[in-house]
Amino acid sequence: MKEIDARGLACPTPVLMTKAAVEDEGAQGITVVVDNEASQQNVVRFLESKGYAATASKNGADFIIIGQTGKQSVIESSKEIPQKTAEGSQPKIMVMCATDRIGFGDDELGQKLMINFIKTIGEMESMLWRLVFINNGVKLTVKGSKLVSVLKDYEDSGLTILVCGTCLTHFDLLDQKQVGKTTNMLDIVTAMQLADKVITL
């Protein structure tokens, strides 16, 4: 494993040092240590452009990037990049809420049930992989919803929450959204494909 200490160096030097190691020495595995987030992101981008899988993590004031050929990239604590769990690990469950209440009959009861359901869903722990809100479900993520703080806690603990942008726009709630990442149908369909189990409400 090739190691590069690029702490104290400004862009683009950390990328150039990584580039030299990758291109001149053909390193299969590489560890780069930088001391700022911009350099971390840049080194990750560079390694990915060269076909490496890059795993970035933080250690005190340092950012450590590990690059290896032939694997999928992961940036810890980044919610923008879908995190593929390692092969053979636990199943990924995707829960899709297309409504703000559970079942038919009494609407008031249905809403209470939904609140309770979302509060309890955390019991799935790390098997809960994606929480998606579409149609009337997006109303659970906007200002005034009793679930905003619960959902924010889930998001802080690493759960990816996706909220349908078309639906928010339809209800004119785009600027009211409090939690989750605005998404589109392609993201939702891709998530369904990657999930091991999809639960729809």
């Binding site: 683009p12 990328v15 700022n36 911009a38 080194v43 981008r45």
Partner: peptide
């Protein structure tokens, strides 16, 4: 160049 990570720190700020 952006793909290669040649992005000034100011862009992230």
């Amino acid at each position: 160049f952006a793909q290669m990570g040649l992005i000034p720190a100011g862009a992230y700020k």
